[in-house]
Design a protein around this nucleic acid. Structure first.
Lengths: 110, 110
DNA sequence: TTATATGCATAATTCACTTATGTATTAATC
DNA sequence: GATTAATACATAAGTGAATTATGCATATAA
């Protein structure tokens, strides 16, 4: 597990990009996918995930669709048009940040 | 200027590594060096810098030496033994985090 | 002489996150 | 058949590293 400090500020970017790459997803599914992609190093907590999804929805970046699976509720999230255009921005912002950090810390990020 | 969100959690790592690479430095000098290394993209604020330096000192990772430059005070910071050993850890932690993020976001960090 | 740069410091506030808690269904294990 | 773990959502309280704002003081440039 990574130092949680470093993760700060990256959650929205992660959510948006994962939704872009994997399409319609529900909350729990996102946690599992991120866990898988990060090889168990990034474990999204519910207390961070749901408020963040709600916020992105409130900002019009995500749209939702609630589905009953038997008696259990699933809330699927997907990107809106605005969400889609923001993803690229956020990801390249992140990549740019990493490059800068590479310079400051004088490390190779192969 | 980078999204300040992303910077969260990286400040200590930056301070430690810059002090390792450039030796004894004072606060203002650190801000200038980081500004230079980041090509103006990372501007450390005093409200973040000084408390962070004080904390690292209190933890025994940095030691200080106050010097009078004419009538002006300069407080030089340098790594302690413990500080030196922590730098490598923190930097490789960061690099590892970046690799993980690369996988999650599916981006190349050349 | 007035703004900008140098140089340190701390207090108040913000805000994204962790931790804790709550509710409920489904599957596995013993 | 009972208990635990996994699935699935949600929110409230608390934390802590940052931002913002403020304060003090000297040195330099316009």
């Amino acid at each position: 597990m990574h130092s949680p400090e470093l993760l700060k500020g990256t959650l929205q970017t992660i959510l948006l990009k994962v939704l872009k790459d994997h399409g319609k997803m529900y909350g729990y599914e996102i946690t599992q996918r991120v866990k898988e992609l990060s090889d168990g190093r990034i474990l999204l907590t519910e207390g961070a995930l749901y408020p963040s999804l709600h916020k992105l929805e409130a900002e019009g970046l995500l749209k939702t669709e609630t589905v009953m699976m038997g008696k259990r509720v699933r809330k699927y999230y997907s990107l809106t048009i605005e969400g889609k255009s923001l993803v690229k921005e956020r990801v390249s912002e992140f990549v740019d940040f990493i490059r800068t950090m590479g310079n400051v810390l004088q490390v190779e990020l192969s």
